[in-house]
């Protein structure tokens, strides 16, 4: 099968700086123009197309980028990623309705809360054998939901209502039905996340994660402080999830425990693996497809999740490394060619 990832990387590596800037800008422009394709074949029946672009599509992309740091880069199986999303959202919900703080002021608090809970969960869990991490994170995800479901302060099953929208930025108003404004804001957050991950990936942290994923014992014996970098991966992943949560709450204006079920964790995990674990472009593609597909095939109405499940099975069997897998290709050997 042709490897699109290698094709893309090939073009990228053969381009010079200016060409690269143009390619990148082209992709950003394409992503930014998506809200204008509402009338075309991209349109989603029943659900509002632009709202689908915000959630699930863009939100899934952001969360998949975060989860990819944990699973794709470091090989830690986290089945409770939704917990950080929920913590961000509830931070926004609580502070937004009870204090005078606005979304942009709460954003760093929500991220900090998610990172903090990442440490609380990560420090004991990451000392255990890898297999157990899956169940402990899964349990953590459920615990966060159950706590929200049972605490009066968090509104129990009714959740939190009337969460404020973000205040205007540069005169741009965020009203609850102006989906494209939210979409473009999310796009900026996503670009920031991509920048962060790419920056880390080529430096020490990226190599540490990569070595841990491939052979943790060897990594530790060659001087990689594995535990520290595993906690960092976990916490950075949490921070992205927290940011997504804050923004999500501020968009939907209403959150309830039902928005944060295990199914979300599983879906985000599916985005990462389906797209191509470890390769950020694959992960983004996976999230776009898996976020968008269920709404696009709404004409199947009741059967859409069933079809979705089938797609997962078939795709994984055909392309177990995902649509755009991680680096497999090597640069030609200039010295050998001589």
């Amino acid at each position: 099968m042709i490897n699109l990832r290698d094709k893309g990387a090939d073009i990228w590596e053969r381009s010079n700086r200016i060409e690269r800037t143009f390619i990148a800008l082209g992709f950003i422009a394409l992503a930014a123009s998506l809200p204008f394709f509402g009338g075309t074949f991209l349109n989603t029946p029943i659900a509002d197309y632009e709202s689908v672009l915000v959630y699930p599509v863009a939100m899934f992309v952001l969360m998949a980028i975060g989860l990819n740091i944990v699973i794709g880069k470091s090989g830690l199986l986290d089945l409770g990623y939704v917990a950080f999303f929920a913590i961000g959202a509830y931070t926004m919900g609580l502070l937004g309705t009870r204090t005078g703080l606005n979304t942009w002021e709460i954003l760093p608090i929500g991220i900090a809360m998610a990172m903090f809970s990442g440490v609380i969960l990560g420090v004991p869990a990451l000392k255990l054998r890898g297999d157990y991490l899956a169940i402990i994170t899964l349990g953590f995800g459920e615990i966060v939901r159950i706590v929200a479901l049972n605490l009066e302060t968090l509104g129990r099953s009714g959740g939190i209502l009337n969460i404020p929208t973000p205040p205007p930025v540069f005169g741009i108003e965020y009203s609850f039905d102006s989906h494209r404004i939210y979409y473009w804001t999310l796009l900026i957050i996503i670009l920031l996340a991509i920048w962060m991950v790419r920056r880390l990936a080529v430096r020490r942290a990226g190599r540490a994660w990569e070595s841990i994923r491939q052979d943790e014992d060897a990594a530790e014996l060659l001087g990689v402080p594995t535990f520290k970098y595993k906690v960092w991966a976990f916490v950075l992943g949490a921070s992205v999830g927290g940011a997504a949560g804050v923004f999500y709450a501020s968009k939907t204006l209403f959150i309830a425990p039902d928005n944060f079920t295990l199914q979300i964790s599983i879906l985000i995990l599916a985005c990462v693996v389906f797209g191509g674990m470890g390769n950020i472009w694959g992960v983004i593609l996976g999230a776009v497809i898996l976020g968008y597909l269920p709404d696009r095939i709404r004409f199947l109405s009741d059967a859409r999740l069933l079809v979705f499940g089938l797609v997962l099975v078939i795709m994984m069997n055909l392309r177990p490394d995902g649509l755009l897998p991680r680096k497999k290709r090597e640069k030609p050997l200039p010295k050998e060619a001589k």
Binding site: R207, E210, D215, A218, G223
Partner: peptide, 19 residues
Amino acid sequence: RLWGDMTALENVITATDTH
């Protein structure tokens, strides 16, 4: 026990990260 998905150079750079 090399890190198979890294290049030879990256394998060594990862070790140099120690310091």
